[in-house]
Computed example of a mutant assay.
Amino acid sequence: MNLLSHTLTSLEVSEMVGRAHDKVIRDIRNIITQIGDAKTGESYFIESTYTNSQNKELPSFNLTKKGCELFGTRMTGEKGTKFAVEYIERFNKMESQLSQPSNTKLLLQSALEQEERLEVVETDVKYLKNHMRINGPQEQRIGANARGKVMQCLGGIESAAYKEIGRKAFQQFWRDFKKYFEIPRYGELPKVRFEESLQFIQEWSPDTALRLEIKKLNGQQHLRLAE
């Protein structure tokens, strides 16, 4: 907290006690002299200046709450009481204002809260984008591409391999697909990985054992046709 923002000027004190400013300055200096310690005196009275109506710079003091209390001890009777009441009210008002958040602080707080809300929304959007499932047409396209790829690997619908181990080949494909994408069924595929799934289908091939089995069955078919 800025100490000067929580003080009264000697000009204000002069007006409050109905005493000439130069005499208030003199009284303050006398008190500082009696305190004897300049550093301690600064916690009561802070030297300053002001510019008068003739644009002349003159000496003044800023009085802390302790300074007002000490200055008030030099005054007796009704005048002293009125000064005490007035400076107490003034300082209480300052303390109340300082305890309330400034407009700038409120704006900063509001901006921070808005930024936090936006971060939450962005996080939610990112989560939805990364976890949103493929739609119906995309699911159909994956299914169709997969059927075409497996059929191609088997040698076509008329091949012996398709007739004998077609089911086995499709099971292997979907097992590989779900394992690669870590999903229980292909309809659970995240939408963001749809293009990747089409690439997977294009690059897929049966394992070595299944390829040999397909080759053997289709080779036997060709032999039968040649007989």
Rank of each mutant, 00 (worst) to 15 (best):
M151Y: 15
F177A: 02
N145S: 14
A144G: 04
R185G: 07
R141F: 14
K191S: 10
L154E: 05
M151F: 09
L198A: 06
I134N: 04
Q171N: 13
A160Q: 13
W174V: 05
L198M: 11
S197P: 06
K179R: 05
G166H: 05
A161W: 07
P137Q: 13
I165T: 09
F177L: 03
K179Q: 06
E158N: 15
M151V: 09
R185V: 07
S205G: 02
D176T: 02
Q140T: 10
K179E: 13
I142G: 14
A160Y: 09
K168Y: 10
E196I: 03
W174H: 08
E164N: 10
V150N: 02
E158P: 01
P190S: 05
E188Y: 14
V192C: 06
E158I: 01
A144C: 00
R193W: 04
Y186R: 06
F194Q: 03
Q171G: 13
P206H: 04
Q199R: 10
K163L: 06
G148L: 08
R147F: 04
L154Y: 14
C153E: 15
R133Y: 10
Y186H: 12
M151P: 02
F194S: 01
E196W: 00
I201D: 03
F194E: 01
W204N: 05
E182G: 05
G166V: 09
I183G: 10
A146I: 11
G155Y: 11
Q199N: 14
E203S: 04
E196V: 06
Q199F: 08
E188D: 13
Y180S: 09
R167L: 12
Q202Y: 15
V192S: 02
F181K: 03
K163Y: 07
E182A: 14
K149A: 13
Q172K: 09
S159C: 10
E196A: 12
A146P: 08
I183T: 11
I183R: 00
G156N: 09
P190Y: 10
G187R: 15
Q140D: 11
I157C: 00
V192P: 00
P137D: 15
G143R: 14
P206G: 06
G136T: 13
A169N: 09
W174T: 02
R147H: 15
I134G: 05
V150R: 00
